[in-house]
Structure formats: structure tokens, C-alpha cells
Computed example of a mutant assay.
Amino acid sequence: MSYLLKPLQVGTLKLNNRLVMPPMATAKAESDGRVSQDILDYYKEKSEGGNISLIIIEHSFITPEGKASKNQLSVSDDDIIEDLRKLADVIHQNGSKAIMQLNHAGSAAEKEVIGTMPVGPSAVINPRKGNIPRELTSKEIDDIIQAFYDAARRTKEAGFDGVEIHSAHGYLLNQFFSPLTNKRKDEYGGSIHNRIRIHLKVIEAVRSAVGDDFPILLRLGASDYMEGGSTIEDSQIAAKEFEKAGIDILDISGGFCGYVVSGCTEQGYFAQLSESAKKVISIPVILTGGITEAKAAEQLLADGKADLIGVGRAIFKDSTWAQRAVESLLTI
């Protein structure tokens, strides 16, 4: 049987195959972050046929200060829960599972969007944005951890199947993870164990919000691929700690390098990172990055590079991609 078509049970989450639609920003929400008809239509179309077992909704801001861009989806207020329920329902009606991705942009936010000065672990330049944020106080860090708790509670109340904590692509938690942007001298800075302290507190908060039987994913920007940045060794240490803390699925992507690895043209840009994570943890690992062909996804699974495959841009461009991929593999 095809590797991609094998079902997978992760706690209470039952997936009918290994195909994941990773989070991709659409800028289709209302200006205040509410669910729009455009977003409902978009996810209805992408989930049609139920060929994608798991759909991770685009990153959604947990506080207005953590908003990454205009028309980004919000999970920052209790008033939005019923709207979010419509979004979960649209995906469920087509037979896919729905995960909400929670994010704080940190220094990747823009003053024009949030109305205040962006914040970060340290007042140093953001390598992707070029701006210098204001350094967060310990009290503000506690408030952000609480915001993750509240957003996770809303996600569960809205009927989603799980929640993903975003620590990739140079956003706030990734800024704490990376030595490029974390120059703190307190308990949150220095060693890798200190740099993931906020992650462990966020995982604990989210778990207390959703209970033991609700899946928690974490998307990790596992390497910056930049001099002085985070490394594979950092991400292996982090992966082990995240598994111990109760993460159910680790979703591997890039750090300050973003969604690509410079000079890499093979499908599965981050296969080296997902494979290295799999060597040290037993929970399932998702691999994304430039995968456009079903046979490439199949080979990555066969080679043990990951347990689940995220196909982003190909599905973004062509809503029938998943159906055709599944059909092509049914004869294997």
C-alpha cells in the first residue's frame, strides 16, 4: 500500500492518510480579523473531497499586538468563537480534520498594522524585517503565555480538532529560539534550554486550556540556515523537550530562512531537519517545503524523512492536486 495513503492515529486524532495542507496566509479575513465569506469559500474549496486528511489553518493572531499583517485571521477574542466554528464546520463537512495555528508575530509585526512599536525577545534587528523591536519585559512574556492559553481555549470551543503553536519563519517564539534575535540575559536567554523556556511555558498553558485529549502541534523553525543562527543540534534538543512537555506532532519548517533553503531545489527542503528530529523523538513529524509531486511525497515517507507530508503551494495553486495525487497512488 502507498505510504501516503496509510491512515495514522495520533491520540484522539484519526487521519485517513498522511497528506497535510500546511498553514498559508491568505489575507482573506475581515479587516478586524473576523472570518469572512472569502475564507469560508477558500477552505471549502481546498477541503473538497476530503483527500487532505489534515488542514492547518493559516496563522492567526492571539493578540492585536501580535498581528502579522492586514486581513490576518484572529483568534484573539471570545466574540470570534462562533465565526471560527463556521470555519471548522466547513472543513469537517468535507471530511478533513481542522487545526488552528496560533501565532504572535513579535518583531515581524509592523507598526502601521498594529499601531504600536513591535516587541521581541531583545532590542536587536530582525533579520527578515530589518526593524528593531522593543524588548519584552517578564510581565509582558507572562501576558503572551496567557494569550496563547486563551486562544487555545477558543480553538477548542470553536470545534477544531487540535491546535498548533507557531514557532517558525521568524515570528515571536522563533525569535526566542534563535540566537540571532535572542540576546536576553535572564532565564529566557543564553542556552538552548533557556531559549525554549517560553515554548515550554506556552505548551503547558495550552495543555491546561484544552485538556489531555486534545492534540497540540508545534511548528518549529528548526534551523535559520544563517551564520550565528539556530542549528539542527538546537532543534534536536528542543524536539526532545517538546515531546516531554506533551506535544503530539512536531511540524518542521525553516527559521529566519523562511519557507525555503537557499540553493536547495529538491522537493522537501527541510528533509534533513525532519529526519534529524525523527532520530530523537517518537511522536509524528510533518515535513513541508517545495513538495509538488505525489511520487516525491511517497519517496520522502518511504525513506523515513517524516511521518506526514505537507503540500502547500501546489494545493494553493490547484485545489484538485490532492484528489489527483490520491488517485495516482491507489494503484500502488
Rank of each mutant, 00 (worst) to 15 (best):
M1R: 12
S2F: 02
L4T: 01
K6R: 14
P7R: 04
Q9M: 09
G11M: 03
T12E: 11
L15T: 05
V20D: 05
M21E: 03
P22Q: 05
M24D: 00
A25D: 10
T26L: 06
A29G: 11
S31F: 05
D32V: 11
Q37W: 09
D38E: 15
D38F: 12
E45R: 15
G49K: 06
N51L: 02
N51Q: 14
E58D: 12
I62R: 12
T63S: 13
G66W: 07
A68W: 00
R85V: 11
R85T: 15
I91H: 08
Q93F: 13
M100F: 15
Q101N: 13
A109G: 14
E112F: 12
G115L: 12
G120W: 04
P121A: 15
S122G: 10
A123D: 04
A123I: 07
I125Y: 11
P127K: 08
R128C: 08
K139G: 14
I141R: 06
I144P: 11
A151R: 11
K156H: 05
G159N: 06
F160D: 01
E164F: 00
I165V: 07
I165G: 06
H166Q: 09
H166A: 06
S167M: 11
Y171D: 00
Y171Q: 00
R197G: 02
A205M: 10
L217W: 11
L220V: 14
D224A: 08
G229E: 01
G229Q: 03
T231R: 05
I232E: 14
D234H: 08
K240C: 03
E241D: 04
I247G: 13
F256V: 00
G263P: 04
Q272M: 00
L273F: 01
S274D: 01
S276W: 01
K278P: 00
I286S: 03
G312E: 02
W321H: 08
A322K: 02
